[in-house]
Design a protein around this nucleic acid. Sequence first.
DNA 1: TTCTTCATGTAATTAGTTACATGATTGA
DNA 2: TCAATCATGTAACTAATTACATGAAGAA
Lengths: 215, 215
Amino acid sequence: MPDYSQGERMSRTTLTTTSFAILGLLAVQPWSSYELTRQMDRSLGRIWPRAQSKLYEEPKKLVHHGLAEASAERVGLRRRTVYTITPAGREALSAWLASPGSGPVLEFEQLLKVWFSDSGTRTGALASIAAARRWAEERNAENLVAARAYEAGEGPFQARAAQTMLAGAFLTDYYALVAHWADWASDVVAGWPEDPADAVPDPAALADIARRAQW
Amino acid sequence: MPDYSQGERMSRTTLTTTSFAILGLLAVQPWSSYELTRQMDRSLGRIWPRAQSKLYEEPKKLVHHGLAEASAERVGLRRRTVYTITPAGREALSAWLASPGSGPVLEFEQLLKVWFSDSGTRTGALASIAAARRWAEERNAENLVAARAYEAGEGPFQARAAQTMLAGAFLTDYYALVAHWADWASDVVAGWPEDPADAVPDPAALADIARRAQW
DNA sequence: TTCTTCATGTAATTAGTTACATGATTGA
DNA sequence: TCAATCATGTAACTAATTACATGAAGAA
């Protein structure tokens, strides 16, 4: 890692967490960018979501740094690029893994809308909560399919099952949390007056939250 | 909301979720940008984190759209700008609140490192997990202080307590989730061999995850 | 053989962050 | 009175997204 403590601007080619996320996938096996987009949709995107175009851009950066190699293939008229990690790439990945990293970052627009619901309607708040509940159901359904596959010893990359399981456990409980919160919040908001600005908190619920924060 | 379905590019001044997040704060009371940064640190940033400079930039955009008004004050030699929501701003906010919004987006670098730990060391994985646990403890401690204040009827913006409570409940359980996951994961990884690539998942734990995904 | 989906890649644009600069206030 | 912190704001830069374009493969 370069030292920016003297105020030097970051160069265009500085490796980011996203770079290392791709590098981590390349450590599993070589992939084309399109194949990386599939992994983003299925697995990586749950904990490090990035747009498809990033998966075409970042591997080039890795190649530029000598952490991966590009091999050109051909499918009919069009070219296809498959990326492979290099020994230097494995070293860089290993060094990155040795530093603890940042805590989880959450962006929750539906909750934001509920939080500001005193400027809106009760109906609107209930709709946001219902949308969150549906989101959790959908994610959980996919997750359950994957969990069952691993349970049957059939998931992809069985050699990495121990690592996959750790992430799977977190996501399982995370989706359940969103769903349970949505159910509870839906009940609470259903008891509000038509104008959420007139709603008052239930003292028992407040006490319960404070209690749950003690562990 | 403008209609981009015909492929029109978004203009420089299109309102984003971040714009509405700021607008939502302005609906509570007028703020200067610096005061908004305080709210970002204390409350808004938990569910919609943004850099300080955004809080100087976005209000200008709101003014440009007629959703807020800027009033210049003076503190000694330097100017100070306080922003106030307009009636059009309240309407726009209300319309935005009526649409359901996007599901939660999570970026969890520490979990990413654990997920790729077959390319690293057991020690490294344990360090990432421990860092996640500390993160949860710190956030929870702040959260508990706030929860206790509301319980005692002393939190800021008592009129919005019903809304604040909904977000507080989510965050409380979210921090507990991260901590409990970290404790469990720490135990699991402690049982791994020195090289995480040789770790095998515990079938009972796999079954337990699948079970927890059924609700 | 045509339509749709899969697969591959680039270009344009912007949302967001980091870094910088400096006046005001407070307390040792 | 000096140093540290609070408060205010801009400039530079980039990480990331959205939109676009098109060939290949498979299905109707």
